[in-house]
Amino acid sequence: MTDATVHPSAIVAPTARLGAGVKVGPFCIVGPNVVLHDGVELVSHVSIDGITEIGAGTRIFPFASIGHQPQDLKYAGEESRLEIGERCVIREAVTINPGTEGGGMLTKIGNDCLIMANAHVAHDCIIGNNVIMANYVGLAGHCVVGNNVIFGGACVVHQFTRVGPHAFVGAQSMVDGDIIPYGMAVGNRAALTGLNLVGLKRRKFDREAIHRLRAAYRMIFSTEGTLRERVEDASELFKDDQLVQDVVAFIAAASDRPILMPRNGQTTE
């Protein structure tokens, strides 16, 4: 323990690894295979177990349960892992489970993520950087979430679902299909409602690139021809545009879930 501060009421296993400046607050429990990198803070009443690694500067708030056995009946005690990146903020009563043999043995969360109170990240999820999960968001097992995704409060996401980078999911949505990069989805069951234009502008995407993306969106989600044909047409017409190619590649990739479509074939972009 390199100048780590551990409250007298906390229980830290002798084999746990604590980096410089780690703070373990009152009534926390840290298991034997846990690694807390420099500057990690467990505020109080945090329980961390399993083969779990927490990146530098991450803060975890009271009653979070991190790295404990997955809620998967097929889990048989395999030594799967959980990795949480740097500078994340994990708020009260969040639960994050490690991976399973059926999903690659790893749950991974990127850097600079904010996971608000009572949210849940299930086994084998892979989450990118700068993701925001508002209160009561639940990701079922095997979800893949790209960078800069925002989930509104009380969303739930079906297992094996992909959410593309820079997407936005409205509050109280039930997502049972893949959401394209830069897309926006709302509803129960969720439907694609357009592009995340507010997010794109806030992140200072080029105005002309946004215009091209909107044109490609209208083409891909029109009602003429098949989706495959429309995607191929957009890919060719916008072959030098990276944002459009991100969407094309996402739709073309194999997935266990369908692509979310606009409701009744309507496009709002």
Rank of each mutant, 00 (worst) to 15 (best):
D3W: 10
A4D: 00
A4M: 13
H7T: 05
H7K: 08
P14R: 13
T15C: 10
R17S: 11
R17M: 10
L18F: 14
A20W: 15
K23H: 11
V24W: 06
G25I: 09
G25N: 15
P26M: 07
I29W: 06
V30Y: 04
S44M: 09
H45P: 00
H45Q: 01
V46L: 09
I48H: 02
D49Q: 13
A56I: 04
G57Q: 08
A64H: 04
S65L: 05
I66V: 05
I66L: 03
G67L: 02
Q69L: 03
P70L: 02
D72A: 01
Y75F: 03
G77V: 04
G77R: 10
I84E: 03
G85A: 05
C88G: 03
C88S: 02
V89R: 15
R91E: 06
E92A: 14
V94L: 14
I96E: 08
I96W: 01
I96L: 11
P98Q: 01
G102E: 01
G104H: 09
M105N: 12
L106E: 13
L106R: 04
L106V: 12
T107K: 03
K108R: 05
K108A: 04
I109R: 01
G110S: 00
N111S: 03
N111E: 04
N111Y: 02
D112I: 08
D112H: 10
C113A: 07
L114C: 12
I115G: 04
A119E: 10
H120M: 11
D124L: 02
I127C: 05
N129K: 00
N130Q: 12
N130T: 09
N135P: 06
Y136G: 10
V137M: 08
V137T: 12
V144F: 05
G146A: 08
V149E: 05
F151H: 06
G153L: 14
A154G: 14
C155E: 10
Q159Y: 05
F160Y: 11
F160G: 06
T161L: 03
H166L: 01
V169C: 08
V175H: 00
D176E: 01
D176C: 02
I179R: 07
P181C: 05
Y182N: 01
Y182M: 04
Y182T: 04
G183L: 03
A185W: 02
V186T: 15
A190W: 00
A191C: 12
L195I: 07
V198P: 07
V198W: 12
V198K: 14
K201Y: 02
K204S: 11
F205W: 09
R207C: 11
E208G: 11
E208V: 10
H211R: 13
R214S: 12
R214L: 13
A215N: 14
A216H: 05
M219T: 13
M219G: 15
E224P: 08
T226E: 14
T226H: 15
L227K: 13
R230V: 10
D233Y: 15
D233I: 11
D233V: 11
D233R: 15
S235G: 06
D240M: 09
D241C: 06
D241Q: 10
D241V: 08
L243G: 01
V244C: 06
D246W: 00
D246K: 01
V248C: 01
A249N: 14
A249M: 12
R257H: 08
R257Y: 09
P258K: 15
I259W: 07
M261R: 15
